[in-house]
Amino acid sequence: MKVVSIAILLLVAGLLQALLPAPARLGQPAWPILPTLVLYFACTRERPMALVVAVTAGVVQDALGLGPLGYSTAALATLVIAIRRYRGEVFESEAVTHVVLGALGAATVTLLTGFLLRANGHIEVPWGTMLVKTAGSAVLGAVLGPSVFWAASRFEQFLGLHWEVAP
């Protein structure tokens, strides 16, 4: 059931991320729903499961874009590793924490993915645009953080799965 819930959440996140229009005023970043969902699993699951989710989410995100596979996976796995390392120091089940985590997580993934794609010649985006997009992504991540944490936890509670912060 746990695997099914993860699969459904990833599917819905991938679906919404490809449908929501990117806000032009924020530099046109994609809504970071998959990265925020990966953050949720990084905070609530053991590291191996969180990394499996990161790899799967990365493959889904890359498959729905025009780039090669692996770049988003690398960025999301880095995010999980960082969160698992510092989670004990910063994470508490509070909305403010989710806002900060959402912003930092989305910005990290956007910057890392953009840097990797640019360095390998897959995109032609000026550095200034990349920074604006990263900042825009942080804003969207801050908005999405509490919502995604709330929705994912409610969904798991609905399915009868016990939700708690993994030790």
Partner: peptide, 28 residues
Amino acid sequence: TLLVLLNLPLTWSRSVKAGIRETLAPLH
């Protein structure tokens, strides 16, 4: 996993991407 994904042959990579797109296309 990362090494495999980043070095996947183009035809395989396209197949994986096409599979995921085809799965999500009806929902989209």
